[in-house]
Amino acid sequence: MTHAVKHHPGIPLLEQYVEGTLEADVALAVAAHIDLCPHCQQLCQDLAVEQGTQLQLMKPVDTQDSEPDWQTMIDSITAEPPLANPPRQHKGPITVQFKDKTFQVPRALARLVEQQTKWTQLGSIANNKLPAGDKRHVSLLYIDKDTAIPQHTHRGLEITLILSGAIVDEQGQYGVGDILINTPDDTHTPRTLPDQDCLCLSVLSAPLKFNKGITRLLNPLQHFFY
């Protein structure tokens, strides 16, 4: 995709994603964004390098009394054969269908959209819940052109990742790869363009915990000047 992504997850979100401590459903939206965003690919690579360095510099835990039996562990591991042919999943583009339309979706959603159930349509909006989580708060949303997007009311975050088309609100326009993060008290009213429909990934998360407050998270790098 050649579209220049403008709206990114904030650094604290990316840090937790790389650490593996972010809620799975939120992490899924972040992962899908990263598939579409070369800038965040580099950022996450750098954050992983930092985590790896922390691991390398870590002081081993001092347990004089009960040292694990490392040698037994080594022996059992090296008795295993190496992976014969590393699986390299290189399928074609991953797509979803809605009526007569076909949309391409990011790699992170590949397995989930394979198991997708069915679309439920209500007026000009159709919803396809992905099998991720009991609460089923991860879904694909198809929104017809010139339509206002309904706001959910709940205590967590509402994350929207644009997969096709665009949406606009009072703040500006969001295109493919852009991520919108709304808090319960956000009042803006996103809608699709007059002449273009839109497919997005929608995640309604449980409330997240952040040490440094939520402002950095909700202030993603929106004004990149590169």
Partner: peptide, 28 residues
């Protein structure tokens, strides 16, 4: 090695919580 450990840990926690969540380290 860090990324392997992170993925192993993530999938261990998913199983422990025994939720029906289908999101795995491979997806993320």
């Amino acid at each position: 090695i860090f990324t392997i450990a992170r993925n192993v840990r993530f999938d261990m926690l998913r199983k422990k919580q025994s939720r029906k969540d289908d999101i795995s380290a491979d997806d993320l």
